[in-house]
Amino acid sequence: MYDNFTPGRNIWKKVGRWLFMTMERVGILVIMFVITYGLIKTLYPYNIGWFGLILILSNLLLTIFLILPSPSNPNGLMYQEILRGLFKIVTPATVDVVSVTERKDK
């Protein structure tokens, strides 16, 4: 069963990543941590309370959502999908496919 390996499928040669943590995802985690920490320090300087815990939990869920793979581009992340929709970028993604079939007029 493990006698033959197809080229490019050797798992020992791949770069090991813990939970697929690329530098882009680590950057998003750091940015969201700084934003959350700043909000907690300014809004709740003495006692976090329930609203502070809700803020921390919602920012944690938002951070997890932002580092998920995007549905239209498996190599991209969800924050790229959101930014593309917000700024209406007209350039297509790298994996977008344009139909080249001719239209048949009746």
Rank of each mutant, 00 (worst) to 15 (best):
D3T: 11
L77P: 03
L83C: 04
F33N: 10
L61F: 04
I64E: 00
N10L: 09
I82Y: 00
I54E: 00
Y79M: 04
L39K: 02
R9E: 15
L86W: 15
I28W: 06
V98N: 10
V90K: 15
T6C: 12
S58Q: 02
I35K: 07
L43W: 03
S99G: 15
L43Q: 13
T63R: 03
P74L: 07
I67K: 01
D96K: 08
V97K: 15
P45Y: 07
K106W: 14
I82C: 01
S58T: 15
I35Q: 09
G49Y: 02
V90R: 13
R9C: 13
W12E: 12
V30S: 05
T101D: 12
K106R: 14
T63E: 04
I48P: 06
Y37T: 13
V97C: 08
G49T: 00
E24F: 01
A93S: 07
L53R: 06
G52F: 01
M1H: 05
N59H: 13
I67C: 02
Y2P: 08
S99H: 09
S70V: 03
E102A: 12
K41Y: 07
L43G: 00
I54C: 10
R17G: 01
R25S: 01
I40W: 00
D105Q: 15
I28Q: 07
L77W: 00
T63S: 14
L29H: 09
V15L: 14
A93I: 10
K13Q: 13
V26C: 11
L55E: 04
I11E: 11
L62S: 06
V97D: 13
L61W: 04
Q80R: 03
F20C: 00
L29E: 05
T94M: 10
T94C: 05
F33W: 14
K88L: 14
E24A: 08
K13M: 11
G27R: 08
L19V: 06
L77Y: 06
